[in-house]
Design a protein around this nucleic acid. Structure first.
Length: 709
DNA sequence: AGGTCTTTCCTTTTT
DNA sequence: GGAAAGACCT
């Protein structure tokens, strides 16, 4: 049975235990994706389960895509129509079919992202005349999301329930009126249909004979509720998770679901995957020694057979700049040792940290790519063009209308939109249709601008089938004068235009993949564009260093990992409130370490510029918590905080001397003995005269505690 | 309505 | 330090 070949005993068990509830506790790098993909293939090939009766849920598009690809390879056939997707995409697929039951939205609802939602909240605050200085829209949005996700809200929040409720109700009303759904709604509405219309639920319960959930430790309450509903009938539910890698609790993820699952499914079979196939011993031991400091966890015994002589390295630089230089030098060293740029990843706690390293990499011509930050589909110009396409394909889409009515500027400002909104409310029409009632309400000039806009959109609508959908972008760009606006902006405009051309090439793929009229093609594309996050797909062909946050690195692996800016206040972050938060930060650190296969570098600096200020942070407490015998430490290890612990870590001479070629008469500084004068030099050592207190010492010349001054 | 100066705010963020 | 929202001026 080839699907079990090459799997260890536990993995085979996980693949072949198909009936009833199963929970797999899969440590980092223990081959859980392998198990999941083989299990799907096993169900289809060995048990003859129809491929559309299996539901596999992942957390990222990337993970879903990877899983589909691997299953497709195992089965040697097209799996495009299988239910392998994220929670949200799965719900969208259900809602596009069944949302009419709720009688609130139509099937062509528009999904809005977080930024769009925030925009709506700001508008609502304005209309309710609530001061946004007093009530931060972002906090309100989070509060609303927490209500929707049924997450407990601490009672000490200054946001009186009254205000939150008021904004919440208005927000929901706007969403319904404008046929919009936010990310939370996708899950909630699906549950609502299932609970109100049992025959719909039954349909899906019968459809999904086998359900599999990846990254189970990161499911939140309603997601858990959803899969519970679906699995009620077959009880063939298979979840894979690792509590030590739960790093999304700030978004409502509940590790408790692991316990809950075992209670809700009393006959759960538990399978432990404890062999790590990714990291060498020293790295795994280091990770284990750290995560043991978490009290709230079940001990496990993750082991590896991979050995390697190198120890993970800790380096404390003098400044953020020096830290980046060190990383650059180590990258060069790794290249000499035979690694490629693409084997190397720089991981950090916050996106803003990438900048310093970026500057150095540009200067020294190290090819790199930053993942995350502002993702492609969130860029202003992309959203603008998408909203043009939305309005053209659906004139009633007020949300799109508001975004682009004055972009590029056509002298239709807020006051005009307010007037149109009043007309809309009075006649119960869309904003676009409200233009027809605007005569006499807006000035003559404004009316003309509105009519120009109207005819422009109508004309584009008529010409939609005239060319391929990607070429239609050019038409939109020209006719709306968006192109003209960008061309007037020099460099920035060119960047934005390049992004739009990128969108165009994505659309040309859509053009080939989907059959039907342009109108239909665009509708398919637009229907779930909000769910797309990374057009920045990893391109393995090119050779570059990857830079990303720890969160983004989850599920990935790299031969060489740099964990940078390991400083107290940044990581763990200063905003943590309690012990639970600290444990989550520690798990983030654990996730970071366990991404590394062969080489690991932890770095930080004594001083750095951060958020416009010069700050000096202590080394991250996590460094101190790691078992020192798995670390080699270099650099500026002096200072009261560290004296304590430098004793605990091995200080070994750096393979590259920081200061070389001393000669008699040089002034140097030693970490412990202070300033001194070189009085003698031989092949390896220097003799230095320090202050009376320390006298004359013979020292290893390239020792990291010595530097030239 | 739109340009420019000034103030404010900064975690993480699979969807 | 730098983006983004807000205030102020034209």
């Amino acid at each position: 049975m080839h699907l079990l070949d090459g799997l260890n005993e536990m993995q085979q068990q996980a693949v072949s235990t198909t009936e009833g509830p199963v929970m797999v506790m899969a440590g980092a790098g223990s081959g859980k994706t392998r198990v999941l993909t083989h299990r799907i293939a096993y169900l289809i090939e060995e048990l003859g389960i129809p491929s559309n009766q299996i539901l596999a849920v992942t957390f990222t598009n990337k993970a879903a895509m990877e899983m589909k690809e691997r299953v497709s390879k195992l089965l040697d056939r097209d799996v495009r129509n299988m239910w392998i997707s994220t929670f949200h995409a799965c719900c969208v697929r259900i809602l596009r079919k069944d949302i009419l039951y709720l009688n609130k939205h139509t099937r062509d609802f528009v999904i809005i992202d977080e930024e769009d939602a925030l925009r709506l909240i700001r508008d609502i605050l304005k209309s309710l005349e609530i001061d946004k200085k007093e009530f931060n829209p972002k906090v309100l949005k989070d509060a609303i999301s927490k209500i929707k996700n049924k997450v407990y809200i601490p009672s000490n929040n200054p946001y009186t329930e009254e205000i939150v409720d008021k904004v919440y109700l208005n927000y929901q009303k706007v969403l319904q009126d404008e046929n919009l759904l936010d990310f939370d709604d996708l899950i909630i509405m699906t549950i609502e249909i299932f609970e109100k219309f049992p025959h719909v639920l039954e349909y899906y319960q019968n459809l999904f004979q086998y359900i599999m959930i990846d990254e189970f430790q990161d499911t939140n309450s309603i997601q858990y509720h959803l899969i519970n509903l679906l699995a009620q009938k077959s009880k063939n539910i298979f979840v894979v998770g690792d509590q030590d890698q739960s790093i999304y609790s700030f978004r409502g993820a509940r590790i408790e679901n692991i316990d809950l699952f075992q209670k809700d499914y009393s006959n759960t079979k538990i399978i432990l995957l404890e062999q790590n196939y990714r990291s060498v011993k020293n790295i795994l031991n280091l990770a284990n020694s750290l995560i043991e400091k978490n009290q709230k966890r079940i001990k496990k015994n993750l082991f590896t057979v991979k050995t390697f002589d190198n120890l993970p390295v800790y380096y404390r630089a003098e400044s953020g700049y020096a830290e980046a230089i060190y990383v650059k030098e180590k990258i060069e060293q790794m290249l000499n040792e035979g690694y490629n740029y693409s084997d190397i990843a720089i991981l950090y706690r916050a996106n803003a940290i990438s900048r310093l390293f970026e500057d150095i990499f540009i200067k020294y011509k190290i090819p790199y790519r930053i993942y995350g930050g502002v993702s492609f589909y969130r860029r202003k110009e992309i959203k603008d063009i998408i909203c043009y396409l939305r309005l053209i394909t659906n004139l009633d889409c007020d949300f799109a209308f508001k975004r682009i009515i004055n972009e590029p500027k056509r002298k239709i400002g807020d006051s005009v939109v307010e007037k149109l909104t009043a007309i809309k409310d009075q006649y119960h029409v869309s904003l676009f249709a409200a233009i027809d009632y605007a005569e006499g309400i807006v000035s003559k000039q404004q009316l003309n601008a509105l009519l120009d806009f109207k005819f422009m959109i109508l004309e584009l609508q008529e010409r939609i089938e005239d060319c391929s959908i990607d070429d239609f972008i050019d038409l939109v760009l020209q006719r709306t004068t968006y192109l003209e606006m960008l061309q007037a902006q020099n460099e920035e405009g060119l960047d934005r235009l390049a992004n739009i051309y990128e969108l165009k090439s994505i659309l040309s793929d859509v053009n080939e993949d989907i059959t039907g009229s342009n109108y239909e093609k665009l509708n398919v594309f637009l229907s779930d564009v909000a769910l797309k996050t990374d057009a920045d797909e990893i391109d393995d062909k090119e050779d570059f260093v990857k830079m990303m946050t720890f969160h983004q690195a989850k599920g990935l692996e790299f031969k060489v990992v740099f964990m940078v800016v390991m400083e107290q206040g940044i990581f763990p972050n200063q905003l943590i409130r309690d012990h639970n938060d600290l444990e989550e930060e520690r798990r983030i650190c654990y996730v970071g370490i366990t991404r590394a296969m062969e080489r690991l570098f932890l770095t930080n600096a004594i001083n750095r510029r951060y958020q416009g200020m010069i700050t000096s942070n202590n080394p991250s407490q996590f460094i101190k918590e790691m078992d020192a015998k798995y670390l080699e430490a270099y650099g500026h290890l002096n200072g009261s905080f560290e004296n304590n612990y430098t004793r605990r870590i091995k200080i070994v001479a750096d393979d590259k001397p920081i200061n070389k070629d001393y000669k008699v008469g040089d002034k140097i500084n030693h970490a412990t003995f202070g300033d001194g004068l070189v009085v003698g030099v031989d092949s390896k050592n220097i003799t230095v005269a320090f202050s009376v207190q320390y006298g004359i010492k013979k020292l290893v010349a390239n020792h990291p505690s010595i530097r030239k001054i």
